[in-house]
Simulated assay, not measured.
Amino acid sequence: MADTAPREFAARCQPVQRVDGGTDGTGDFESVVPPSPERGDLKVGEHLYWLRPRLRQRFIATVLASGELEVEGCRYRSPSDAATACAGSPANGWTAWRLEDGTLLDKLRP
């Protein structure tokens, strides 16, 4: 959930496009940030944070087993797709999202 998120967020929330072209929210998804317990980086269910203090916004994304990020019930294949939906304009999700300890997601980039 986001604190003081833009009201238009729900309108920007679009289903993730499946690799096979479907958009029904099921099936195999192209994974951009696959969780990897073997590497010890991201874990399924882990939260990523994007704080925008000047705008008084805080977004929380959850890492899914497919490697997607879920923000406010919407699934995104890339960190930038999630950040762009939150911001309402193009955003680099790799440098926006952080782990709880403050590490930028970009530091874990494959």
Results as ranks from 00 to 15, higher is better:
S66T: 10
A83V: 00
G45M: 12
H47A: 14
V71D: 04
C74L: 09
S66L: 02
R58C: 07
A82W: 06
R54A: 14
R52Q: 07
W50L: 12
A85R: 04
Q57C: 08
S66D: 12
L69G: 02
R75N: 00
A83N: 01
G73K: 09
G40L: 13
G40N: 13
G40W: 12
D81G: 05
F59P: 08
A82G: 11
E72D: 09
T62L: 01
L42W: 01
S78R: 05
G45F: 13
A82V: 05
L55D: 14
S78Q: 03
W50I: 12
V44G: 15
E46T: 11
A61W: 08
L51G: 12
E68H: 13
A83Y: 00
E46Y: 07
R54F: 11
C74M: 06
T62N: 00
A61P: 12
H47M: 14
A65Y: 03
L48P: 13
L55W: 14
R56T: 08
C74E: 03
A61S: 07
T84M: 03
Q57A: 09
K43G: 14
A82R: 11
Q57K: 12
W50R: 15
G45W: 08
L69V: 06
P79I: 00
L51V: 10
H47I: 09
L64E: 06
D81W: 01
R75F: 00
Y49C: 10
E72T: 01
G45Q: 13
R56Y: 09
F59E: 09
S78M: 02
S80Y: 05
S80M: 03
V44S: 14
D41M: 02
W50Y: 15
L55I: 14
R52H: 10
G67C: 04
